[in-house]
Simulated scan of single mutants.
Amino acid sequence: MNRTTLLTTMALFVAIGTLAAQFLWFPTGIAKAYPVQHAVNVMAAVILGPGPAVVIALMIGLLRNLLGLGTLLAFPGGLIGAFFAGYLYKLTKKTWSAGVGEIIGTGIIASLLSVPFANVLMGQSVGALAFVPGFLISSISGAIIGLFVLSRVKESNFIKRHAFSK
């Protein structure tokens, strides 16, 4: 994939993840859940790989926070989920493994790491399992959306020419 196509695709994913945050979210205590972020993580992981997926998640988190649409918990949730989605896909070459990676990365690992993150950076004292239910629901629903979209476009020339193959 050439640099222009890569950057354009990344920008498109960032736009989708940022704009969708205005319309599709639900509260989970002190956090907000954004299933589209998880769908974008899965799609970017499969199409672009773990590195670009993490950068996309970072940019979406930054923009959502700058626009007042998210919380600081976007960073552990989005980045860890994107990394695991990309890594598991790279390891197995199975699209469903990107969804599993997103759920493990965000729903379990990031939700547990968000507890000290919330305590230190947000001044919120929460228990060890405070974020697990919301993060799991958000990452599962987002992973399903992402896998569904990928299943609909997998035959397109774009996916055939640009899917992550290293």
Rank of each mutant, 00 (worst) to 15 (best):
92 T>F: 11
96 W>H: 14
67 L>C: 11
2 N>W: 12
55 V>H: 03
61 G>W: 11
44 A>T: 08
147 L>Q: 10
86 G>L: 06
125 S>M: 14
107 G>F: 07
155 E>S: 14
102 E>G: 02
98 A>N: 03
41 N>T: 04
30 I>E: 07
40 V>I: 08
57 A>S: 11
109 I>P: 06
1 M>I: 09
16 I>Y: 01
85 A>N: 09
21 A>K: 06
34 Y>H: 15
3 R>N: 10
77 G>P: 04
115 V>F: 10
67 L>I: 08
89 Y>V: 09
53 A>H: 11
2 N>K: 12
133 P>W: 08
103 I>F: 09
21 A>E: 09
13 F>E: 12
126 V>K: 09
39 A>N: 03
77 G>S: 14
42 V>D: 01
83 F>W: 14
165 S>H: 13
82 A>Y: 04
25 W>T: 14
34 Y>P: 00
53 A>C: 02
8 T>Q: 07
47 I>T: 07
96 W>T: 07
50 P>I: 00
84 F>Y: 13
5 T>W: 06
146 G>A: 05
13 F>S: 09
109 I>D: 02
46 V>L: 02
26 F>T: 00
41 N>F: 04
54 V>T: 07
158 F>N: 07
99 G>L: 02
119 N>W: 14
41 N>M: 03
6 L>G: 02
82 A>V: 10
81 G>E: 00
164 F>S: 04
111 S>H: 06
156 S>N: 13
60 I>F: 11
110 A>P: 09
117 F>D: 01
28 T>G: 15
77 G>D: 07
27 P>K: 12
16 I>P: 04
161 R>P: 00
166 K>G: 15
154 K>D: 08
154 K>G: 10
62 L>R: 01
82 A>I: 08
5 T>D: 09
80 I>A: 04
82 A>S: 06
107 G>T: 07
95 T>C: 00
164 F>M: 06
104 I>V: 14
141 S>G: 01
92 T>D: 12
132 V>I: 13
153 V>I: 15
85 A>P: 01
65 N>F: 09
24 L>D: 02
90 K>I: 05
53 A>E: 09
58 L>V: 13
48 L>M: 02
86 G>W: 04
60 I>Q: 10
44 A>R: 03
118 A>R: 05
44 A>Y: 04
49 G>W: 08
20 A>L: 13
74 A>V: 13
108 I>L: 15
160 K>W: 00
62 L>S: 13
111 S>Q: 08
73 L>T: 12
20 A>P: 06
92 T>V: 08
89 Y>Q: 05
148 F>I: 15
21 A>R: 07
155 E>I: 00
7 L>H: 02
149 V>G: 09
15 A>G: 15
71 T>P: 01
139 S>L: 13
8 T>K: 10
162 H>N: 14
14 V>R: 04
35 P>G: 01
137 I>M: 13
